[in-house]
């Protein structure tokens, strides 16, 4: 499935607010478009995204077909200590993409 690209700072100060940028290559077929044969192309979108840091929920989101092709999502959170940021996208067909990035608190 899709390929995810993320921009995460490698280091941060304790308690610093960091901004994470994420982008996934995905068609986000809304289920409203029609193909050449006049039939509706079935819906196939990324319907969920979640980010956890050190096992704690940062943000979990539910996406609807109104999210654009190649869904972009930017969010911020405060880094308490060194840990892993795990980001996960879930497709309508059940497949998932996961990205893990470590943020080191100096």
């Amino acid at each position: 499935m899709a390929k995810a690209r993320v921009k995460v700072p490698k280091t941060a100060a304790a308690g610093e607010l960091v901004t994470i940028k994420t982008l996934v290559n995905h068609k986000m077929e809304s289920g409203r478009r029609k193909g050449k044969d006049g039939k509706v192309i079935p819906r196939k979108i990324i319907n969920a995204f979640s980010a956890t840091f050190g096992g704690e929920n940062v943000v979990s989101a539910k996406f609807e077909p109104a999210i654009s092709t190649n869904p972009y999502f930017q969010f911020s959170f405060t880094v308490p200590s060194t840990g892993d940021l795990v980001m996960k996208w879930t497709d309508d067909d059940g497949s998932t993409v996961e990205k893990t990035k470590t943020i080191t608190v100096a």
């Binding site: 840091f53 704690e56 943000v59 999210i67 911020s76 405060t78 880094v79």
Partner: peptide, 10 residues
């Protein structure tokens, strides 16, 4: 979309 924020999220 709906977004649920944890204690760390702003």
């Amino acid at each position: 979309g709906t977004f649920n924020f944890g204690a760390l999220g702003d």
